[in-house]
Amino acid sequence: MTTETRIDARKNCRGVGCPMNLVHAKVELAALAPGQVLEIILDDGAPVNNVPASAEKEGHTILRRQQLEDGCWSVLIRKGERG
């Protein structure tokens, strides 16, 4: 899959622990319209395990999780209808 997804906002949460990384994700998502996409960079371990799951619980969709060279993860979140 090499289809380019249009990214509407980016947030670097390298080094940001739980739960502040989720707070930042929510702030970014709140500024987007439903259907728009946020790329968030999360640390390996608890952050990448927790933030996407919490985002899904709030009605957003995880489009992709990709580990980067430095071990962090790029996660694409599409904002859901109930935002």
């Binding site: 929510k26 702030v27 709140a30 619980k57």
Partner: peptide, 17 residues
């Protein structure tokens, strides 16, 4: 402010808005 109010923002029923 994000840190001060983080426990409210985390609540889905409260959130940033």
């Amino acid at each position: 402010q994000l840190e001060r109010y983080s426990r409210h923002i985390l609540l889905q029923d409260v959130g940033v808005e």
